[in-house]
Design a binder for these strands. Structure first.
Lengths: 399, 399
DNA sequence: TTGAATATTCAAGTGTTTTGAATTAATGGA
DNA sequence: TCCATTAATTCAAAACACTTGAATATTCAA
């Protein structure tokens, strides 16, 4: 996430070629479910012989499973291969100021285990050992036969580094500003590590196991402490130069509007966010600290909550128009720490702009859909990042 | 630009590896200027032997030039290689409703030739032969010894396909809505073709020959007929799902603001665009149709133009805040069809937000800088796209 | 029953990179 | 001035992964 030197693109060789091709094969197997060698060869543009070699290697490592031969018209029926869900695991950690959430997922990104551990302090010296212990515990249930651990995804509240928005959010971690989380976690955990913000991780989770498995380009609006945005465009994650892309909460939707903790006026998250709804209800004598509070109020048809939803839909619709015009996504997904029914209510009341590049006759999906919600989203997303990396090749760059 | 089936990522082999490595080598040579084989090997992570082979091949094709041996401390001085500017050329075409602009650039993206040709109509059947003839003429000056032509970049006014914004702009091409420009141009020109929108092309031009040669992540705000945005993030072009990303002009900056031709209210381009300034001045009895008109008014310290700039700076600053928070770029560049002095005035008067992720202590560049301006920007950018592709490797995907 | 179609394997060949030793040319210290 | 050291480059052989073409297995259709 931290970068001083410009990225250097590095060369390829036979070994890296094989690595690339393995990912390509796994990617196709994951998205298609079941495929034979010959069909994989056609899909990837490789020879059947090359495919046989790659398949043999992956099967030997237990990452894929050979199934029945399947008859499809004439000719020798093809042996169908599938991804082995038990072939490998990945860890996901969400670091919050007062706790860490640890998740373990299988090779398809399905949840195997989750656990929350409280933190005394958010200093690196405290957090790192706790995270290490949590990871060990997560893997301990396997006993002797731990599957290959692909790595650990780490989600930390952004923004990364000292920037103009620093120090304005409640969720910020003290003691991390001048640290390199990637290096620290890789050192502590002794495995490959990826650090991302919560919204990006949630977006990847959505693509891995959620409602966006078919999507190559989408925006994930993430209700966390603030309001984040994860962007996947043509299959690639949008990071921005310093890993801080997607600060949707501080996009201004109303000039001279409500005063935000960041000092600006009219930021989206003063209208549409967990914080906004909590404050709104608190001002009316109601508590909405937990997701359950909100669920209950919604179930009871609370008029104040209802009013808030209507009020929040306007600014959100405007922001969605902005996202559509700037990112041209296949769809926009709403998820995170809001009750699913509330998100659906919100989507229902959106008065979307009629004139954006996303208004197309040939749309297959609605412009805005509901995604996965819940407080574990980010930790699962962190693990999904690691899974993602083993299915999607990328150009190798080095700092 | 058009895409029905999901993108399929394809496998690699020795041949594609060489292609990748050639690009990596050319990319480093371009950005560093002069390098020896051994240093290139270190930069790319390849062996010196592999580098020798690649260098020999590139030199044999005339794409790079061997220079003097250069002494750097002990040891055999390294032969310094540079990109050969005359090694290859690329064509760029901007298609407008009433004319095409044709540009020819050398292997470094420097302009060799430009020409405008009027169009009777913007129908494909009329445009394609005119473009073909323009390309032939551009290359005719070489006589017998035409350098390798890498391809042609085509810039067309977006948005592509029939979308909600279609039919609202003045610049739209009639007769192209249901066509596949890429296939049509490739057929007509018999060479590799890339189709992009004007802002993206301008952004690539800026990175190739303009003020952004060092930047990996930036936003290019392009003053064309409307207001476009080209985004390069970590070296990769942001297209969006349908090639329509970057519709900055229709981002709403003021709820219930001025009525835009798209039907919405408060679109940025009703405040800050060529169109906006023209209308503003026209309303005050002054003409500002051409870039020269604007230059003259500016030179004469025209109070109306001055007032417009101040008025336009507000909405633009807000949009820039949005771009900073959503894309986290290294810088934002303003360019296109506005006089350079006007862009500088505009930048000077921007009252940028103090709280965005782009406010960093360690900034090397100002948050907003002026880029290349002028009416040829898009055509040169189109050619730069082709140049870009020969220096930057990418994951091969197929529709 | 036979021939066409399809998947897969076998064996050899090709392209590109890697490895290790040899060569060339400059520096720095004796 | 000479020689060991350092660094770039080349040479020759080996390694790696993919491709090609022929052979084999299995199914469908005539």
């Amino acid at each position: 996430m931290y970068r001083d030197a410009p990225l250097k693109i590095i060369g390829s060789n036979a070994e890296r070629t094989r690595l690339h091709n393995r990912k390509v094969v796994l990617g196709h197997l994951r998205s298609q479910g079941k495929l034979g060698r010959a069909e994989l060869a056609r899909l990837t543009g490789l020879s059947t012989q090359a495919m046989s070699n790659i398949i043999a290697e992956l099967e030997g490592e237990g990452l894929i499973l050979a199934g029945e031969r399947q008859t499809k018209g004439r000719g020798l029926p093809a042996v169908q291969y599938t991804v082995n869900p038990q072939g490998a695991v990945a860890l996901g950690i969400e670091v919050r100021p007062n706790a860490i959430l640890c998740a373990l997922v299988n090779f398809l990104g399905d949840t195997l285990y989750t656990k929350r551990t409280d933190l005394e302090s958010s200093e690196p010296a405290v957090v790192l050992p706790v995270v290490k212990a949590a990871c060990d515990e997560a893997l301990s249930s396997f006993g002797e036969h731990v599957p290959p651990v692909l790595g650990a995804g780490i989600v930390m509240p952004g923004p990364f580094g000292r920037v103009g928005l620093s120090g304005t959010g409640k969720a910020e971690l003290v003691g991390w500003d001048d640290q390199d989380p990637h290096a620290l976690f890789e050192e502590a955990l002794q495995m490959p590590v990826r650090v991302e913000n919560d919204a990006t991780a949630a977006a990847i989770a959505e693509q891995t196991t959620g409602s966006a498995t078919e999507l190559q380009s989408f925006c994930f609006v993430y209700f966390g402490t603030g309001l984040g945005l994860g962007v996947i465009s043509n299959g690639e994650i949008l990071h921005g130069a310093f890993g801080n892309a997607g600060e949707l909460g501080h996009v201004v939707v109303e000039r001279g509007g409500r005063l935000c903790s960041c000092g600006n006026r009219g930021c989206l998250e003063t209208y549409t966010s967990r914080m906004a709804v909590s404050e709104y209800l608190q001002g009316r004598g109601k508590s909405a600290e937990s997701q359950k509070d909100l669920s209950d109020l919604l179930a009871a048809n609370d008029p104040d909550l209802d009013a808030w939803i209507s009020e929040a839909a306007g600014p959100l619709a405007q922001a969605i128009g902005t996202l559509e015009n700037l990112f041209d996504p296949e769809a926009i997904i709403l998820g995170g720490a809001m009750p699913p029914e509330l998100l659906e209510q919100l989507i229902e009341r959106l008065d979307l702009f009629e004139a954006t590049v996303s208004v197309r006759e040939d749309r297959k999906l609605p412009r805005v859909v509901r995604g996965t919600s819940g407080w574990m989203t980010a930790a699962l997303g962190a693990a999904a990042l690691i899974i993602h990396d083993t299915y999607i090749p990328s150009i190798s760059k080095v700092a």
